[in-house]
């Protein structure tokens, strides 16, 4: 496939195929797109993301949020404003999209849209800069990471974060389950995300 196929629609399909076809239970997948900022520095910015959610939530046994009532109100307020921005209508207190509790992993995914990594910073930056996957399993390893985003992920309930470099960026996957390194997953990323080859 040529670079022309690299668009929002195919990205979404590829992220979805990666997560839904995996044996492991991934909570989300994000593609960090490589580009350059105005000073010429290498930047990984938001390309697209697919949020699947936590399996535990549907089983009713999982901890979906550790947030206080005030934090929930804040999250819902932000979602209401974002929804209004997207739909072009005034914020509504009874919008279906925001009435539901905003889980920790949903919030982490949303906040991700505002993030970027410059010159090899963070797990994604390291993976891209060194052309080597970064696989972090376990809350203790996430807490001990030098990457702010990894520590933040642990706070929001993640137990695994993975960054796999591709031709034009980095595929990041996160899970609330401990998942150990899988060559099968890395091979899938190479096939699905190496647009230039």
């Amino acid at each position: 496939p040529s670079v022309a196929l690299f668009n929002q629609e195919t990205l979404q399909q590829r992220l979805q195929a990666l997560i839904e076809g995996a044996r492991e239970s991934w909570t989300y997948a994000i593609f960090w797109q490589s580009s350059y900022d105005y000073s010429g520095a290498s930047v990984l910015g938001w390309g697209d993301g697919y949020y699947k959610g936590d399996d535990d939530k549907s089983k009713g046994k999982g901890k979906t949020t550790t947030s206080s009532a005030a934090e929930q109100e804040h999250r819902k307020k932000v979602l209401r404003e974002l929804n209004s921005l997207i739909s072009g209508s005034a914020p509504s207190a009874t919008d279906e999209a925001v009435d539901e509790e905003v889980t920790d992993t949903e919030w982490f995914f949303l906040v991700s849209m505002t993030q970027s990594f410059v010159n090899g910073m963070g797990l994604a930056g390291q993976a891209f800069f060194n052309s080597t996957p970064v696989w972090v399993t376990g809350a203790d390893r996430l807490v001990g990471s030098t990457c702010d985003r990894a520590r933040q992920g642990q706070v929001f309930g993640l137990q695994t974060m993975v960054c796999i470099p591709s031709a034009n960026g980095v595929v990041e996957l996160g899970s609330t389950e401990p998942i150990f390194q899988s060559s099968d997953l890395m091979q899938k990323v190479r096939v699905l995300f190496n647009f230039d080859s």
């Binding site: 580009s35 930047v43 949903e106 849209m113």
Partner: peptide, 26 residues
């Protein structure tokens, strides 16, 4: 970099739409 805000907007719209669908089917 100019493509990033558009990508975020599309992703956000999709995320909110999926939340809405989940809320309505619950």
């Amino acid at each position: 970099p100019s493509a990033v805000p558009q990508a975020r907007k599309a992703s956000l719209a999709r995320f909110l739409e999926k939340r809405k669908e989940r809320a309505m089917s619950a």
